[in-house]
């Protein structure tokens, strides 16, 4: 899968995650008056949005790595983190909205016209930020957490603006929030994919075989390569590759390859090695899979 397709995939599964959460949110909003307090209402929204969006985002990485195991573990962890993040997102979003809204409420009417939609969008952005952390927290990567924050903030903000914009031009439109959620999901996904792409300092390109031309980004400090679907670079359909075959660690901008004690061994430029510092353009052989290492 090329990098562009990868971003499209992240975006698309983000949209679906957003759409998934929408009916539940509408249900909770419909019953707002039933909740005893605003806090419980926001917790309910957080759980509702977190379960569905978190689950959806969790699945997306598995979908992209074409691994059933990763989808399952992604959904479960995404769900759990999503619930926690959702609650946190709604409470902070609501707190900020109450603060800003009250300030804007006592401001000039010209400020209010822009201020209210803007402050609600900020609420959306904070919620989006927390929900987007699912990706990062799941993989315990500081870089991915940062990606999540950027994607979630901008996606949430834009999603919120879209809702406000639709409400201006077509008041009482049933689909306003649906579109808002889709935009939120799309942007979290696309930004995640895009920023991940930008932040990766190196990549591995599969040169041949079943998944030929698939590109893997080395975003993490340690990248495992192997046949196990749990590895970051999980390759199936190549012979002589063991579960965790080789790992690449990032050390002060350099990428160091270490063989994980595999029988078939690891080769850099056709030379068997136990460990080597990689240069741009190196050809790495893991079992029967050959990769081109590229610095970016």
């Amino acid at each position: 899968m090329t990098l562009l397709l990868r971003i499209v995939f992240f975006g698309f599964s983000g949209i679906l995650a957003g759409i998934l959460a929408w009916p539940v949110i509408e249900l909770i909003l419909f019953f707002q008056a039933v909740f005893p307090t605003l806090l419980l209402f926001n917790i309910a929204l957080g759980v509702g949005a977190g379960v569905f969006m978190g689950g959806g985002f969790g699945a997306s990485e598995g979908i992209i790595s074409v691994s059933g195991v990763k989808i399952k573990s992604g959904v479960v962890t995404g769900l759990v983190i999503g619930v926690v993040a959702g609650i946190a997102g709604f409470i902070t979003g609501q707190a900020v909205l109450l603060f800003l809204g009250t300030a804007i409420f006592h401001s000039a009417y010209s400020v209010q016209r822009i201020g209210f939609p803007l402050s609600r969008s900020i609420g959306w952005a904070l919620f989006g930020m927390c929900i987007a952390l699912v990706h990062g927290v799941r993989s315990r990567s500081a870089g991915k957490i940062r990606n999540g924050i950027i994607g979630g903030l901008s996606g949430g903000f834009l999603g919120g603006l879209v809702v406000e914009y639709i409400n201006v031009f077509s008041p009482d439109a049933w689909y306003a929030r649906l579109v808002g959620f889709a935009v939120l999901g799309l942007l979290i996904g696309v930004f995640y994919g895009f920023v991940e792409n930008r932040m990766a300092k190196a990549s591995l390109l599969l040169l041949g075989g079943r998944s030929k031309n698939r590109e893997f980004l080395l975003t993490q400090k340690v990248t495992n390569i192997g046949a196990s679907p749990k590895t970051e670079v999980g390759i199936s359909g190549y012979d002589h590759v063991v579960g965790v075959h080789t790992l690449i660690t990032r050390e002060k901008g350099e990428f160091v390859l270490t063989d994980a004690g595999s029988k078939a061994g690891t080769y850099v430029n056709d030379e068997k090695t136990r460990g080597a510092t990689l240069k741009d353009g190196d050809v790495i052989r893991v079992g029967d899979a050959q990769f081109l290492f590229r610095k970016r």
Partner: peptide, 27 residues
């Protein structure tokens, strides 16, 4: 008056069950 807005704004006046079809659809 005091400000009491919520992030997602007001809920719909009527709940349409058809909206829930979006869940199996996106799944």
């Amino acid at each position: 008056f005091y400000f009491s807005g919520t992030i997602f704004g007001m809920g719909r006046e009527k709940l349409d069950w058809k909206g829930f079809l979006f869940i199996p659809f996106s799944c």
